[in-house]
Amino acid sequence: MSKGFLVFVESRGGQLRKASLEALSEAKRLAQSADVHAIIVGKDIKGLAAELAKFGPTSILIADNDLFANYSSEAYAKAVTEAVNKLGARFVLAANTSMAKDFIPRAAAKMDAACVTDVMSIKGGGDNLEVTKPMYSGKCYGVYELNSDVSFITLRPNVFALAENGGEAKSEDLSVNVEKVRAQVSEVHASEGNKVELSEATVVVAGGRGIKGPENWPVLQNLCDTLGAALGASRAVVDAGWIDHQHQVGQTGKTVSPQLYIACGISGAIQHLAGMSSSKVIVAINKDPEAPIFKHATYGIVGDVLEIVPKLAAEVKKAQG
């Protein structure tokens, strides 16, 4: 009998994170007959259990405490490891978000456990899973075996399908004995920029040198607004100071896997391709017909970004009715 799964489900501002629910959906697919428990951690979060139950966990552990009101790696790692000890879970899954990236490896070290992050596919079931993740920013992939009593896996957002399985999961309070918190979030400042998070967006519109100058971002932003897309950028324009680093896609920026990636005036340096080549559909718009980006694009248009993008936005709007 398999020892089952535990899924860490992140919440922010009273909302369950979609990427976490993708992880829960994947755990349900992998678990076969084993249990899939979910854990939520925070303050005043009991109300989230009903929404979470729709995704079919066996049970929901709720660590609701003043200590969790402000995020801390130490307290969150402790909550998850205590849940693992209580349930005897074989696998712990979480979405590869900035929160999970911070504390899941810490929890794994606490349990002397295997940990693989940013996983894009999982094979097997029951007690044996084989996980595949991008290496060298997606220039190649590594297939890992996990050889510890409990293993931690974080899943790339946007890659695993959501599935509402329904169910009547019972909730249970998890009391966590946190001995020490020596570092904790004291303030959160919303950053200007994307309303849709780049790494979780289903559509990304990205700009490079071909947009000619930072004064032309509104042209791309308009297309983003029409498509509900996040705005990305090449390293060249980030390094030139045209836009903040949080928009950078590629080897020293973010790696994205949207349904649709529209590269505007991006030539397609190997470091950039690494960050976006797992997108389902790639559109390239570039005035240089020899630009390497065209080799990777599903559809290409040769021409001036500043002429084409507004026309594209208008045409999309027309199609949307």
Binding site: A113, Y144, K295, Y299, V302
Partner: peptide, 25 residues
């Protein structure tokens, strides 16, 4: 090691794309 790298693979090849033709509109 508890996480064992079993195999390294190249990413799946992207199907050949195409450049569109005609005037911009």
């Amino acid at each position: 090691c508890k996480a064992k790298l079993k195999e390294v693979l190249m990413p799946p090849e992207r199907p050949q794309g195409r450049k569109l033709e005609g005037d911009i509109d």
